Amino acid sequence: DEIHIHFNGVTIEFRGLTEEAKKALEEAIKRGASEEELKELARRLIK
């Protein structure tokens, strides 16, 4: 299970995320999180 985020022309790929983690990332994107914020969020979620 993986998710691809297209962000300002950059694709960020995450693997092994739970549904909750995906929802958290989607919410962050909707509120306009920066690419760095998304990566940091993903790091926290994957652990």
Results as ranks from 00 to 15, higher is better:
Glu2Val: 15
Phe14Ser: 02
Ile3Ala: 07
Phe14Lys: 01
Ala24Thr: 14
Glu36Trp: 08
Lys23Phe: 13
Glu13Thr: 14
Val10His: 10
Ile29Ser: 06
Lys47Thr: 15
Glu26Gly: 06
Lys39Arg: 12
Glu13Trp: 13
Arg31Trp: 09
Ile12Gln: 04
Glu40Phe: 02
Glu36Ile: 08
Ile46Asn: 14
Arg43Asp: 15
Glu20Lys: 08
Arg43Val: 13
Lys23Pro: 02
Ile29Tyr: 15
Ile12Ser: 04
Ala21Pro: 00
Leu17Ser: 02
Lys47Cys: 06
Gly16His: 09
Ala24Leu: 15
Glu36Lys: 08
Gly32Glu: 02
Ile46Ala: 02
Ile29Glu: 02
Leu25Met: 07
Gly16Cys: 10
Glu35Phe: 14
Ile3Pro: 06
Gly32Trp: 01
Asp1Leu: 14
Lys23Trp: 11
His4Val: 12
Asn8Thr: 05
Ala42Leu: 15
Glu20Gly: 11
Ile3Asp: 05
Thr18Asn: 11
Ile46Leu: 13
Leu17His: 02
Glu36Gly: 05
Lys47Phe: 15
Leu25Arg: 00
Glu35Asn: 06
Ile12Ala: 04
Ile5Gln: 03
Ile29Pro: 00
Asn8Glu: 07
Ala24Lys: 09
Thr11Arg: 08
Ala24Gln: 14
Gly9Tyr: 03
Lys23Thr: 12
Ile29Val: 10
Asp1Ser: 13
Phe14Ala: 03
Lys22Phe: 10
Glu2Gly: 10
Leu17Asn: 02
Glu26Ala: 07
His4Pro: 02
Ala33Pro: 01
Ile3Asn: 06
Ser34Phe: 02
Ala24Cys: 11
Phe14Leu: 09
Ile46Ser: 07
Ala21Gly: 15
Thr18Val: 05
Lys39Ala: 09
Thr11Ala: 07
Glu27His: 09
Ile5Trp: 09
Glu26Trp: 11
Ile12Thr: 07
Ile3Trp: 15
Arg43Gln: 12
Ala33Thr: 06
Ala42Cys: 02
Glu37Ser: 03
Lys23Leu: 11
Ala28Cys: 05
Thr18Met: 03
Glu35Ile: 15
Lys39Tyr: 15
Ile29Gln: 06
Ala33Gly: 02
Asn8Gln: 12
Ser34Tyr: 01
Leu38Lys: 00
Glu37Pro: 00
Ser34Thr: 13
Lys39Phe: 15
Glu27Gln: 10
His6Ser: 13
Gly32Cys: 01
Gly9Val: 03
Glu20Asp: 09
Glu37Trp: 08
Gly9Asp: 06
Gly32Met: 02
Ala42Met: 15
Glu35Lys: 07
Ala33Val: 13
Leu17Tyr: 05
Phe7Tyr: 10
Gly16Trp: 07
Ala24Phe: 10
Lys22Cys: 03
Ile29Gly: 02
Leu38Arg: 00
Leu25Ile: 10
Ile3Ser: 06
His4Cys: 04
Lys30Asn: 11
Arg31Met: 14
Arg43Thr: 13
Glu13Met: 11
Glu20Arg: 09
Ala21Met: 14
Ile12Leu: 11
Leu25Cys: 01
Glu36Gln: 09
Lys30Val: 12
Arg15Glu: 13
Phe14Gly: 02
Ile46Arg: 04
Lys39Ile: 15
Leu41Cys: 01
Ile5Arg: 01
Ile5Cys: 08
Arg44Lys: 13
Arg15Asp: 10
His4Ser: 10
Glu20Val: 07
Glu27Thr: 08
Phe14Glu: 01
Glu13Gln: 11
Gly9His: 04
Gly16Tyr: 07
Arg44Gly: 04
Leu41Val: 02
Lys39Cys: 09
Lys23Ser: 10
Glu26Cys: 14
Phe7Trp: 07
Leu17Pro: 01
Ala21Asp: 13
Thr18Pro: 11
Lys23Asn: 11
Leu25Pro: 00
Ile5Val: 10
Glu20Ile: 06
Phe7Val: 13
Arg44Thr: 12
Ala33His: 02
Leu41Tyr: 03
Ala21Lys: 01
Glu19Ile: 11
Gly32Phe: 04
Leu41Arg: 00
Arg43Lys: 12
Asn8Ala: 08
Glu26Met: 11
Leu25Asn: 00
Ala33Arg: 01
Thr11Glu: 08
Ala33Asp: 11
Leu45Phe: 11
Val10Trp: 03
Glu35Cys: 06
Glu19Thr: 11
Glu26Ile: 12
Phe7Gly: 04
Thr18Ser: 13
Gly9Lys: 05
Leu38Trp: 05
Ile3Val: 13
Lys23Glu: 11
Ser34Gly: 07
Gly32Ala: 01
Lys47Asp: 15
His6Val: 12
Leu45Asp: 00
Thr18Gln: 06
Lys39Trp: 15
Glu2Arg: 13
Ser34Asp: 08
Lys47Gly: 15
Asp1Val: 15
Glu2Ala: 14
Val10Ser: 08
Gly9Phe: 03
Lys47Pro: 14
Thr11Leu: 13
Ala21His: 14
Ile5Ser: 03
Ile46Gly: 06
Glu27Arg: 09
Asn8Phe: 06
Lys39Ser: 05
Ile12Asp: 05
Ile12Trp: 07
Leu38Glu: 00
Ala42Asn: 01
Glu40Leu: 03
Arg31Cys: 03
Ala42Asp: 00
Ile12Lys: 01
Ile3Cys: 05
Ala33Gln: 02
Ala42His: 12
Glu26Thr: 11
Lys23Asp: 06
Gly9Thr: 03
Ile5Leu: 12
Ile46Lys: 06
Glu40Gly: 01
Asp1Glu: 09
Glu27Gly: 07
Ala33Ile: 12
Gly9Met: 01
Glu13His: 14
Phe14His: 04
Glu36Pro: 05
Ile29Phe: 13
Gly16Gln: 08
His4Ala: 07
Glu27Met: 09
Gly16Lys: 08
Phe14Gln: 01
His4Trp: 09
Arg44Leu: 14
Ala24His: 08
Lys30Ala: 12
Glu36Val: 06
Gly9Ser: 04
Phe7Ile: 13
Ile46Met: 11
Ser34Val: 02
Glu2Ser: 15
Ala24Trp: 05
Glu35Gly: 11
Leu45Ile: 08
Leu17Val: 07
Asp1Arg: 05
Ala33Glu: 02
Glu35Trp: 15
Arg43Asn: 12
Ile5Glu: 03
Glu26Asp: 10
Glu13Arg: 12
Glu37Val: 03
Glu27Ile: 09
Lys47Arg: 05
Ile5Gly: 04
Glu40Thr: 04
Ala24Val: 15
Ala33Tyr: 10
Glu13Lys: 15
Ile5Thr: 04
Thr11Trp: 11
Phe7Glu: 04
Ile46Glu: 08
Leu25Gln: 00
Glu2Phe: 15
Phe7His: 06
Lys47Leu: 15
Glu35Tyr: 14
Val10Phe: 07
Thr11Ile: 13
Leu25Ala: 01
Arg43His: 14
Lys23Cys: 04
Arg31Asn: 13
Arg44Val: 10
Glu26Pro: 00
Lys22Trp: 09
Glu19Asp: 10
Arg31Ala: 14
His6Tyr: 05
Glu20Trp: 08
Glu37Tyr: 05
Glu37Phe: 05
His4Phe: 10
Asn8Ile: 06
Glu26Val: 09
